[in-house]
Nucleic acid binder design. Structure first.
Lengths: 363, 363
DNA sequence: GCCCTTCATGGAAGGGCTTCCACAAGATAG
DNA sequence: CTATCTTGTGGAAGCCCTTCCATGAAGGGC
């Protein structure tokens, strides 16, 4: 009767539970549970009766109670840096879509300040909160490695890696190589690089790819052509850093490069802005290639290296889900091969907007 | 002993609970609970003893159990359209920061396809899942109004509104007025508008503001100068729509406007691209003002109408939290006044980057 | 007609916490 | 010295579900 009374009250903190349904349908609570969990060993007539009562009383299982009883939250968290660039937005779409398909909830922990990372890691480690964690684009703090292992809390690193955990990333070295080689193939010989701080692994790898390409084309490496962020407060994957780096390159006067490779699209935007301020244009005055292929790269016609961000997002969720189901397999590291997208700023003419397809390559 | 045994096992699905702590510390479970919830009626010595045992056994309260017992999830969800534009990213930062300060968790439901909205609304309505909902930038489905009211599930509408619920928005009409008036003040008389579909309320209001400004300056309204998206599959707040609209304006030949106001920055980017394709430039050939002031507006020097997105995000959380604490107050509707940010594309010269401050105006 | 399965079902136990009530012991007041 | 209050404490009950075991009925084989 309780449920009915509540209905008559027309609201209130509705508390129709499994017992109300059982009483009303003249069955046991076990049966009610089985019906709502779609177990098969329930007779058709009983099932229908229970469902009918459920509809009538507007029953909904209580999420927290289910999680407690099942010892499973069906929730994962994503720890994502909000500050760096727009990379995460596109990855997030993939994450979100797959999470929905698999029926998980997604708790978002966005990092905007240093120090937040530890807070959120601790939080996400609380028992009963999440079944697994997606950790993005940042150095995973060492002191948490063993704690995660002890808790056996599944975690997947994206755009960063560690031998101990599953990881997904793009081949940064290869991407940088492709970008640089493209500019070389276009005839450029003095090619600048607008890099981020080498404390960032992607920045290191992208520098390696750049040098490798120069080497392969027999071009002497000139360290004056590689520019790092001056402001050491951030990792330098931002517009200001790109702007200032381009200023420095332009300040070289006659020695200045005829082309540049930026370690991220965001930096490339800053560089473009600097060019505009000097009434210069890409590719006419300086050809430019970025890295990431975030959505805005199309908006400004930036040639760049495409990362399959959406696919990275969906794969990350798949890998995490697999580990939740089966925690005792060795860590898997997956790599994506990035591709060049030719637009306007590299000066290679308007080729087709490039096949944006991408391939994955499990290692 | 259980806790110790588990520790010795060096892992396993650690299950140190309140009973383990109580036994080990020779106190009752109630006392343990009080200690970990910082209740004050516990003697200092007992408290210290319990905390010591807690540290030793590495105790953490179980999130689901707490939520069940407290009948409070300490979680809110945000239902956000991912597809339209980058508006949401910036609002999300504000949401995220405030949510952290208040100790809530944030479940993200990103909408990428029509129909998902209903799915997520249903999901978010499940008992025990969230304490409240943030609903962004979309028309709230009518059939859910009464259901939310009955459940007394707190909800705040952002960038959209309904008399029944709390809401937060920017004064769209005023913003459009300011943008148009600015172009008029610069001497333009043929001013185009690149609008989105009028099914969107912001689009309607922004059109009104545009017309009002023309009126006030004694300029005859010309419907040929207002362009709507051709592709009716979306609301038109996207780059393609902006691009095509600018194409249409350019196709007017000698009749073409000398300036244009775009209903969103994203559309403005598309418009700028179209200009580039015709080797035209803003503001030289056509002056341009956008709306939103998303981060990329700076990157390309777009003059635009600034919405205090971060503040909208934090306020949304505050309003929601207030309603969770006190569900029985009348809905409050808050409005922000947008401001013009002069950059390059409007042609008003390089004034100071404008005070980006913003004010709220409760109604 | 009897024994063994199989299937549907009821409900206790268990998951881990908060909260409330009861109680003891000390402090305060008259 | 008794009556009253305060403070600290223990633990049962309650939050709502899932799961497992026991039971009874029905079906199958010989």
């Amino acid at each position: 009767m309780k449920g009915i009374v509540l209905l008559q009250m027309g609201g209130g903190p509705l508390g129709v539970n499994i017992y109300d349904i059982a009483r009303e349908a003249h069955v046991g609570i076990g049966t009610v549970s089985r019906v709502f969990n779609n177990r098969r060993n329930v007779s058709a007539s009983t099932r229908e009766k229970v469902l009918e009562v459920g509809r009538r009383l507007n029953y909904q299982p209580h999420a927290s109670a289910q999680r407690l009883a099942r010892q499973r939250s069906n929730t994962i968290s994503a720890i994502i840096p909000f500050f760096t660039n727009y990379f995460f937005v596109e990855v997030l779409q993939g994450v979100q879509d797959r999470v929905e398909q698999l029926g998980y909830d997604l708790i978002l922990y966005g990092i905007t300040r240093k120090g937040q990372t530890e807070t959120y890691l601790r939080r996400t480690m609380q028992r009963g909160r999440v079944d697994g964690v997606l950790f993005f684009s940042m150095k995973f703090p060492e002191q948490f490695i063993s704690r995660f292992q002890q808790l056996r809390l599944p975690i997947v690193l994206v755009d960063t890696s560690l031998p101990e955990f599953d990881s997904i990333a793009v081949e940064n070295r290869r991407g940088a190589y492709i970008a640089t080689a493209h500019l070389l193939a276009l005839g450029h010989r003095r090619i600048g690089m607008i890099n981020a701080s080498l404390t960032s692994e992607p920045a290191r790898l992208r520098l390696e790819g750049y040098r490798q390409a120069l080497d392969d084309y027999g071009v002497q490496y000139d360290r004056n052509l590689v520019r790092f962020p001056k402001n050491l407060k951030s990792d330098g994957f931002n517009r200001e850093a790109g702007h200032d780096a381009m200023e420095e390159l332009l300040a070289m006067g006659g020695d200045r490069p005829s082309a540049a490779f930026a370690a991220s699209d965001i930096q490339a935007f800053g560089a473009l802005q600097a060019l505009r301020e000097h009434s210069l244009h890409a590719p006419k005055d300086i050809a430019l290639v970025g890295f990431d292929d975030i959505e805005f790269a199309q908006h400004v016609g930036l040639s760049t290296i495409h990362q399959p961000m959406y696919e990275i997002g969906t794969l990350a969720v798949d890998v995490l889900a697999a580990r939740v189901e089966n925690p005792d397999v060795v860590p898997r590291h997956t790599t994506f091969i990035p591709e060049l997208v030719v637009r306007e700023t590299c000066g290679a003419g308007t080729m087709s907007p490039a096949s944006r397809a991408s391939r994955s390559m499990p290692v």
